[in-house]
C-alpha cells in the first residue's frame, strides 16, 4: 500500500516538476494524438512504428512521451533493487574469494564487478522476475494517469464498460507475459551460475 501511495505522489510531483521546469516533456493524450497522425500503425508500439516509418524525428517524439511514465514506474521499482543489491553485495564482498582476488592484485573494479556483483546477482535476478508482475500492475495506474494509450489503460477502460471478453484477454496476456519472463529468468540462472543445471 505504501508503495502505491509513493507512486501517486511521485506522479503528481513529476508531472508538475518536469512539465513546469522542462517544457519539452509532452505528456497528454491529445498531444500524442497530434503527433501520431500520419504515422504508420503496424504494431501499435509507437516507438517501433515510427522507426518502421523511417522517421527519426517521430521516433524521438514518441520516446519523449514515454520518458515520464517510464521514470515513474522505474523509480518505484528501483527502491527494491537498490536495497537488495546493497545487502547482497555487502554479504558477497566479505567472502573469501573476494579477498583472494584482491590478494592477486586485480583492479578494484574487476573485483567488485567481476567477482562480487556476478555472485551477488542471482537473488537480484529472482527479484526481477517477481517484480515484473508489479511492473505490469504499476503500468495500469501509470498509463491511466499519463493518458498513455497502452494495455493497462485499455484494461481499465474495458472494466468501466464491463467488457468481460476484453478483460479476460488482457488479463491472460498479462499472465502469459509474467510466466514467460520468469521462464527466461530461470534459464538465465543456469547461464549465470554454472552450478545450476537443468
Amino acid at each position: 500500500m505504501k508503495r502505491k501511495r509513493v507512486k501517486f505522489w511521485l506522479k503528481g510531483f513529476l508531472i508538475s516538476l518536469l512539465v513546469l521546469l522542462a517544457g519539452w516533456v509532452v505528456y497528454t493524450y491529445s498531444a500524442w494524438y497530434l503527433m501520431c497522425r500520419g504515422v504508420l500503425h503496424l504494431t501499435g508500439l509507437y516507438t517501433i512504428d515510427s522507426l518502421l516509418d523511417g522517421s527519426i524525428v517521430k521516433f524521438v517524439e514518441a520516446a519523449r512521451y514515454l520518458f515520464l511514465p517510464s521514470l515513474t514506474l522505474g523509480l518505484m521499482l528501483s527502491g527494491v533493487f537498490i536495497r537488495l543489491t546493497r545487502s547482497n553485495m555487502l554479504e558477497t564482498l566479505r567472502l573469501d574469494f573476494v579477498t583472494a582476488a584482491r590478494a592477486r592484485g586485480l583492479k578494484e573494479s574487476s573485483v567488485v564487478y567481476g567477482y562480487a556483483l556476478r555472485n551477488a546477482f542471482l537473488p537480484i535476478l529472482t527479484m526481477m522476475g517477481l517484480q515484473f508482475a508489479m511492473l505490469l500492475g504499476g503500468a495500469i495506474l501509470t498509463e491511466t494517469t499519463f493518458s498513455w494509450p497502452g494495455l493497462g489503460r485499455y484494461l481499465v477502460d474495458r472494466i468501466n464498460f464491463r467488457d468481460y471478453t476484453a478483460i479476460q484477454g488482457a488479463v491472460i496476456l498479462f499472465g502469459i507475459l509474467v510466466a514467460f519472463v520468469n521462464l527466461v529468468v530461470d534459464i538465465l540462472y543456469a547461464y549465470l551460475d554454472p552450478r545450476i543445471r537443468f
Partner: peptide, 29 residues
Amino acid sequence: RGKKVAFIFQDPMTSLSPVKKIGAHFVEL
C-alpha cells in the same frame, strides 16, 4: 600482490569464484 607476493588462503572451498572457470582465474591474473 600476486606478482611479487602471492597469498594462499585457508579454505580452498571458498577461495575461488564459483561462477568463473579455472582458466578465467588464471587469464585474469
